[in-house]
Amino acid sequence: TTIHVGDLTLKYDNPKKAYEIAKKLAKKYNLTVTIKNGKITVT
């Protein structure tokens, strides 16, 4: 599972963990989490 945050690309083997991290990042920086085709993007 890949999380895209701006220019950063973070890879995680565990999709659930990746989603949790994405949610935390989104909350911290007041951003939105988008999931599309298995890719998690924080914008």
Rank of each mutant, 00 (worst) to 15 (best):
V42M: 15
D13V: 06
V42T: 02
I40W: 04
K27Y: 08
P15S: 09
L8M: 07
T32Q: 10
K39I: 15
T9H: 11
K11M: 15
Y12A: 06
G6F: 12
L8V: 10
L25I: 14
Y12M: 05
Y12P: 03
K36R: 13
Y12C: 14
K27D: 07
V33G: 00
K27L: 11
L8P: 02
T2V: 11
L31K: 01
T43P: 01
K36I: 14
T41L: 14
H4P: 02
K17T: 12
I21D: 03
T2M: 09
Y19R: 06
Y19P: 00
T41D: 05
D7G: 14
Y12H: 03
G6P: 03
K39A: 13
I3T: 02
Y29T: 00
N37T: 07
V33R: 00
G38M: 05
K36E: 14
T41V: 12
I21E: 06
I21Y: 11
K36M: 13
I35F: 08
H4S: 11
K16F: 11
K28Q: 07
K11R: 13
K23E: 08
K23A: 10
T34S: 10
T2I: 12
K24A: 13
L25E: 00
N30E: 03
P15I: 13
K28T: 06
A22S: 02
A26M: 05
L31H: 02
K16G: 09
T41G: 02
Y12E: 02
K17I: 14
D7H: 14
Y29G: 01
L10D: 02
K23Y: 13
Y29H: 04
N30I: 03
L8C: 15
V5Q: 02
I35Y: 08
D7Q: 14
N37R: 07
G6Q: 04
T41Y: 15
Y19W: 15
Y19H: 06
T32L: 10
N30G: 14
N14L: 05
T32M: 10
V33K: 00
T2A: 07
Y29N: 01
A22P: 00
V42G: 01
V33D: 00
Y19I: 11
E20S: 12
G38L: 05
T41N: 08
Y29V: 01
Y29R: 01
T32R: 09
T34W: 06
A22T: 02
A18N: 01
K17Q: 13
K17Y: 12
K17M: 14
V42Y: 03
D7A: 14
D13N: 09
T2G: 03
Y12T: 06
Y29S: 01
K16D: 10
K39S: 14
T32H: 10
V5N: 02
T9R: 09
Y29E: 00
D7T: 13
Y12W: 04
K24W: 15
T32N: 08
G6C: 14
I21N: 04
I21K: 05
K11W: 15
A26R: 05
L25F: 06
T41P: 00
K27P: 00
I35S: 05
K24E: 07
Y29I: 01
K39E: 15
L10V: 07
E20T: 09
T34Q: 11
K24F: 15
I21P: 00
L10F: 10
V5G: 02
A18L: 05
T43D: 05
K24H: 10
D7P: 10
V5F: 15
L10S: 02
G38F: 07
L10Q: 03
L10W: 06
L25N: 00
T2D: 05
H4N: 08
E20M: 14
Y19T: 03
N14D: 15
T1E: 03
N37P: 10
L31C: 08
T34C: 09
K11C: 15
T2F: 08
A26T: 02
T9A: 10
K27A: 12
T34V: 13
N14Y: 06
T41E: 09
K24C: 14
N14W: 08
P15R: 08
K16R: 12
T43C: 09
K17A: 09
K27W: 08
I40D: 01
I40L: 08
K16V: 11
T32S: 10
T34L: 11
T34G: 04
N37M: 09
V42P: 00
K36A: 13
I21L: 09
A18M: 04
L8N: 03
V5I: 15
T34P: 00
G6R: 03
I21A: 13
I3E: 02
P15G: 06
N30C: 08
T2P: 04
E20K: 13
K23C: 11
Y29Q: 00
L8D: 03
K39V: 15
T9M: 12
D7N: 15
L25Q: 01
K17W: 12
A22E: 00
K28M: 10
L8F: 10
T1W: 14
Y29P: 00
T2Y: 10
K24V: 09
T9E: 13
A18K: 01
K16Y: 12
L10I: 12
K11Q: 13
I35G: 02
V42F: 10
G38A: 06
I40T: 02
K28D: 03
N37D: 14
I21Q: 06
N30S: 08
K28L: 11
K17V: 13
I35N: 04
K39Q: 15
V42K: 00
H4D: 06
N37H: 10
L8T: 04
D7C: 15
T34N: 08
T1D: 05
N14G: 05
T34D: 06
V33P: 00
G6T: 04
N30P: 00
A26S: 05
L10H: 03
N14H: 06
N37L: 10
D13Y: 08
I40N: 01
K39M: 14
T1G: 08
A22V: 06
K23T: 11
G6H: 09
L31F: 07
K23F: 14
A26Y: 03
K36H: 12
Y29D: 00
K16C: 11
A22L: 09
H4R: 13
I35L: 10
V5Y: 09
A18I: 04
T34R: 10
I3R: 02
D13T: 08
T2K: 05
E20N: 10
V42Q: 01
